[in-house]
Nucleic acid binder design. Structure first.
Length: 824
DNA sequence: GACCTGCTGCGGTATG
């Protein structure tokens, strides 16, 4: 690379010295990034973790500052003497902020720059935040939410008047979420104030990096000047699997996987520090307990970590990992990102990874240094997960990584943003419309939609205009501003797009907080009963003030809390790779070690029924005491199967009145009925035509939309969650949300927030477009119906699946009628 | 011939 000016070359020499002093050699991609930055360009740096991305983007602004003569003047680093805000670093994670502060601060100090560096997020004191209200540091670390808040300050524009660069860390993590959309809007605002602003993103490997780059830089950015920089060092990622000793004894079904405990213990023993990822919070509790029972001497050397444990508890575990004091930590995706745990040298994945990107991300938590290989070891919990791990490795090798498409103009996020900007100095409608349309997510925003949003924030839309509290924004001389300070304050209290259920705090009688559980779990605990939480045995004393008061207990039997989490369906990529492995097996190729191990079971499947070809849909029909079972195996992932099961049941019940029970997993679904269903003309059951209508009719879509509406209403500012000290309960909020939902449905059925809630249900929960693609694939396939004497290895997991939803066709028809009136 | 599925993420106020 060549820097432009002499000063830049001199500055670059300083940076080379900085590297040399640490025994490093800058990587090519780092040099490329610096050059692009100095040339005034924006871009996205893409590399696996531990490849030196941070220094690649961070040193650009520092070299520039050095070249401009921000020279070292010791003692001049007083806040007031430091340059005003120049660089903004956006991180999606509070827990990352302190680490980042350290990583960024070191070169600032070493290069002797008179910069101030602060964060606004994490455990920042209120006095620091107050100071920042008076004057911002030269470089600031924030979250998307904090940035949004800053945009709501009346003098926001002046505060960003010297901004030169925004860096978004872990952009892949934000990209296809409402937090990402909010970030896009904030970036659009900053770019408008500062036309030459450079935007840089850091991202892990993604299916569609081009889109990630476009969403980062905004619509209409000069694409020829945008850089996509790929770290050139090949990071070796090794995906292995613990093969069960005796496949004959290995479970066909189940998700806990404790039969593999001895193997896992051996893996922990063979390494210095191990992360054990599981898919659910209760699973971490059970595994932690099981390991401790097997190795009581490890007490204090192992820990667990998940999202319902208290912050302090989690921070303690993170620190222990970082310092290499913990032998193993059992965790959920709460440790996917965040603090750099260099001592970790082994990562285990218990159960299905569900996606290729997730497995790679987790592998990257080990070998966290440039050049070090990352390794992940899969721990199957049932036989077919052996196929999944083989599939994941193949997909990773072929670069079949999940894409994360940005959201498509969510109007709730836009409504929030518009109020934010109205509070932050105000706007003129045409200007803000043009600005918003430069955000990638809103590039197709129509005049009508824009007018609707303005109407919504100025008078609450068509229905709510009688209520002054929904006239949040007033218009004077064409300027839109927040009506009064109280409204602005209330708005600031609800900035952000994360909406979660309120939970019950678990707390010792003596004071210490342990974390949270769900109300439903506490409600069936009686005082005196014990449960396991955070690796401790606790006695439940009483429930008061949304808190489950507990004390330490000793004894044996105890319940383990269950949390209602999201479903994690197999990704499209992993599902495709899974089908490819089945096809290899069908052709008698058993190349992967996992496939060799699972061979006897798949051969049994082929013998009792068959292994379906890629262009074949297998349906098995079995008669048992329970009734008539239909097992269908599209291998498309759980969410698609849920939609398919409902769809097929609905279409069957249209032929004749019949009731079904469902079971669904990532490989297929089961319909069980007391009488044999009429399955003539199978292709018609799976026909893509009429999908949208039948889907809405077959599922309780109105109820799903009603629930989804709460999130939309909260983000759009219809629902106020209360002051931090006096939060409203989930029940209260759901009640007011339902009220809005009813009123809109009745008097304002075209309300765009309602439309959005319905769309979000179809897209997010039912993955409608993925379901459509699956139906099209099935339509191009042949359908094989086989009568089998007893359940096959593929069918078996579905049979033991307890999650069985009873849905009678009579109730269904009633529901259809209700829904037709609501969705008409 | 088989029981234990369901993740993550942030922010604000103010007075004792």
């Amino acid at each position: 690379m060549t820097a432009g000016t002499d000063a830049q070359r001199a500055a670059l020499a300083c940076v080379e010295q900085y590297f040399a002093a640490r025994g490093w050699q800058p990587f090519d991609f780092q040099r490329q990034t610096w050059a692009a930055y100095l040339a005034g360009r924006s871009g996205l740096v893409h590399a696996v973790t531990g490849a030196g991305k941070t220094l690649a983007v961070w040193l650009g602004p520092l070299i520039e500052a050095l070249a401009e003569g921000d020279a070292a003047a010791q003692g001049r680093r007083a806040r007031d003497a430091s340059p005003p805000l120049r660089v903004l670093w956006i991180t999606p994670l509070r827990a990352l902020a302190a680490d980042t502060e350290q990583a960024l601060g070191e070169p600032i100090a070493a290069l002797g720059l008179p910069w101030t560096l602060e964060r606004r997020t994490g455990d920042t004191s209120s006095s620091l935040r107050a100071k920042q209200k008076a004057r911002l540091p030269t470089a600031l670390i924030t979250t998307p939410e904090s940035l949004s808040l800053m945009l709501s300050w009346p003098d926001a524009q002046a505060r960003f008047a010297h901004l030169r660069c925004v860096i978004v860390d872990e952009w892949h993590e934000l990209l296809s979420t409402k937090r990402g959309t909010q970030t896009e809007l904030a970036l659009a605002r900053l770019r408008r104030w500062r036309p030459g602003l450079r935007t840089w993103g850091l991202s892990a490997t993604l299916g569609d990096l081009g889109v990630a780059l476009r969403a980062l830089l905004g619509q209409g950015a000069d694409e020829s000047a945008a850089c996509l920089i790929r770290a050139d060092l090949p990071k070796q990622i090794v995906i292995e699997t613990l093969i069960p000793d005796q496949i004959e004894r290995f479970p066909w079904a189940g998700h806990l996987g404790l039969t593999m405990l001895p193997r896992v213990i051996a893996a922990i023993e063979a390494n210095r520090s191990t992360l054990i990822f599981t898919n659910t919070r209760s699973q971490t509790e059970l595994w932690y307990q099981a390991i401790l029972e097997a190795r009581p001497e490890w007490a204090g050397q192992i820990a667990l970590h998940h999202g319902s444990l208290d912050k302090t508890e989690r921070a303690f575990v993170e620190a222990g990992l970082k310092e290499g004091q913990l032998r193993a930590v059992v965790c959920t995706s709460s440790l996917d990102l965040g603090v750099d745990f260099s001592p970790v040298d082994c990562v285990l994945q218990v159960g299905s990874p569900k996606g290729v990107a997730r497995l790679l991300q987790r592998a990257g938590r080990s070998g966290h240094a440039p050049g070090c290989p990352s390794r992940v070891i899969g721990v199957p919990t049932h036989a077919l997960e052996l196929v999944e791990f083989a599939a994941a490795r193949q997909a990773a090798q072929r670069g079949q990584i999940e894409a994360r498409p940005p959201l498509n103009k969510p109007l709730d996020v836009l409504a929030q943003h518009v109020v934010t900007i109205a509070a932050g100095g105000g706007f003129r409608a045409p200007d803000l419309f043009a600005e918003v349309r430069t955000a990638y997510a809103y590039r197709d925003l129509t005049e009508v939609e824009w007018a609707w949003v303005l109407d919504f924030v100025t008078r609450g839309g068509q229905v709510l205009n009688a209520y002054p509290e929904f006239r949040r924004v007033v218009v004077e001389d064409g300027w839109y501003r927040v009506a009064d300070e109280a409204t602005a304050q209330r708005h600031r209290l609800s900035i952000g797009t994360i909406v979660s259920e309120s939970a019950i705090t678990v707390q010792y009688l003596k004071g210490g907080k342990l974390g949270t559980v769900e109300e439903s779990f506490v409600s069936w605990l009686k005082p005196g009963e014990c449960f396991l939480f955070g690796g401790r045995l606790l006695e439940f004393v009483r429930l008061r003030d949304n808190t489950a008061w507990v004390r330490r207990a000793s004894g044996r039997r105890a319940a383990v809390p269950r949390w209602m989490g999201g479903r994690m369906p197999l990704s499209t990529e992993l599902a495709g790779a899974f089908r490819a492995q089945i096809e290899a097996a069908r052709q008698g190729r058993w190349d992967e070690p996992e496939m060799q191990a699972v061979r006897p079971i798949l051969e049994l499947q082929a013998q009792r029924s068959r292994l379906p070809a890629p262009d074949e849909l297998l349906i098995e029909r079995v008669r048992t005491r329970e009734g008539h079972h239909l097992f269908v195996f599209p291998f498309e992932g759980r969410s698609v199967h849920e939609g398919l099961a409902a769809l097929v049941a609905f279409r069957l019940s249209r032929r004749e009145p019949i009731s079904f029970s469902f079971a669904v997993n990532d490989y297929g679904f089961e319909l069980l009925s007391p009488d044999p269903p009429d399955i003539s003309d199978l292709p018609a059951l799976f026909a893509p035509d009429g999908l949208a209508d039948d889907l809405v009719a077959s599922l309780n879509a109105a109820e799903l939309a009603r629930r989804q509406f709460r999130e939309v209403a909260r983000i759009a500012g219809l629902l106020f969650e209360g002051l931090p000290s006096r939060r409203k309960s989930t029940r209260q909020l759901q009640a007011s949300s339902n009220l809005f939902y009813e009123v809109f449905s009745k008097y304002d059925p075209d309300n765009l927030l309602l439309v959005q809630a319905r769309r979000e249900v179809l897209e997010r929960q039912l993955e409608e477009s993925r379901l459509m693609r699956a139906l099209q694939r099935i339509a191009a396939s042949r359908i094989t119906l086989l009568d089998v004497p007893k359940p096959t290895p593929l069918a078996f997991p579905l049979m033991v699946d307890r999650l069985r939803e009873q849905l009678s066709s009579e109730a269904l028809i009633e529901r259809v009628r209700k829904m037709q009136s609501q969705f008409a």
